[in-house]
Design a protein around this nucleic acid. Sequence first.
DNA 1: ACGTTAACGCGAACCGACTTGCTTTAAGAG
DNA 2: CTCTTAAAGCAAGTCGGTTCGCGTTAACGT
Lengths: 188, 188
Amino acid sequence: MERARRPGGRSARVRAAVHQAVVDLLREEDWDELSLPRVAELSGVHQATLYRRWGTVNDLINDVVTEQLAQGSPVPDTGTLRGDLEAYAVNLADGVAGPLGTLFLRAAMVGSRGPDGDTYMIERAADLQAMLERAAARGERPPTLLELMEVVIAPLYYHAFFFNRPIGHDHARALVDRLLALQAANRR
Amino acid sequence: MERARRPGGRSARVRAAVHQAVVDLLREEDWDELSLPRVAELSGVHQATLYRRWGTVNDLINDVVTEQLAQGSPVPDTGTLRGDLEAYAVNLADGVAGPLGTLFLRAAMVGSRGPDGDTYMIERAADLQAMLERAAARGERPPTLLELMEVVIAPLYYHAFFFNRPIGHDHARALVDRLLALQAANRR
DNA sequence: ACGTTAACGCGAACCGACTTGCTTTAAGAG
DNA sequence: CTCTTAAAGCAAGTCGGTTCGCGTTAACGT
């Protein structure tokens, strides 16, 4: 894999300015107003640079999402299964609202892929899997990854997607309750 | 509300050809290849007509989705709650796969609205609510609409959206099982 | 500090999406 | 059958997104 040949100062500044402009545009304007010329205008970076470095809007979005996922919102480790799940759910609820949520949904829709060719979802899934295995190691009885996705994560996205209004923390925690209740019921 | 002034023969044929072309394009090409000129080419209808009747790609998609929802897939009435739910879930599972699912998701993402200004989701919700009320009238103990959406519908969309692969009928029925199991647990 | 060159800035040209004024066709009414 | 006119076809023109060749800047190695 080809490493970036000159990652230093200027390129980094340009990248940051462009990423910032993307988020800003998404915050104010409509979904499909996002174009490279528009980003160029707002960021002060020349169009040609955008086309050369990123090529298309989707690739740019891809880059932004990758960066955000890499640094922001790590999977929590609170010491209890319930604690981890609630922290994660509440965090995700906040995340899918706001401009980054939109970005993320759009990225997913176009079938964006991370550097290793995997879907973002799959990369994240590994982290969640690890969280569940920590719980199992402590002697708790965690749900499967599929159950977690279906009972907690899917509803969060669903609300954001179809009704795009923020999901309350209480509501997010209620989803976790439901998941754990199912676990309790299954054990019998 | 202004009725269509001349809904007869030719207009109907044009509309049908255009709708067909949209679905065909979506089946073969990529998500963002869909443009009015492209649809014009494939349908044999002139560009100008498309721009005058629909204006934008989103409005066209809107029209297609509205039509599909209006005729296709009515909310079932099998006589039992479980029967209704399973029929609905299996049907939706098939629906969200395939090109129409994509169409629908995209429409939702842009925040499409039906003729009365409501989100499609909200229009459909009324039908589902009626289904649940029929069950209640029979003396069954139906879940709330919110529970139905979160436990059954959300996961179906989630799978289609993030992993876009079809959901098996068994899997769809399993989601209904989960919903009913939750109901049983709550009753205690 | 100095030279090399990747990465950015600039403007012109290109191309496809979108618009518009006019003409032609055929639905629907009498 | 005839008339009216809504809706479709046509073609030229505008506009914004995209590409390209060339000159300039500033990372990074020495």
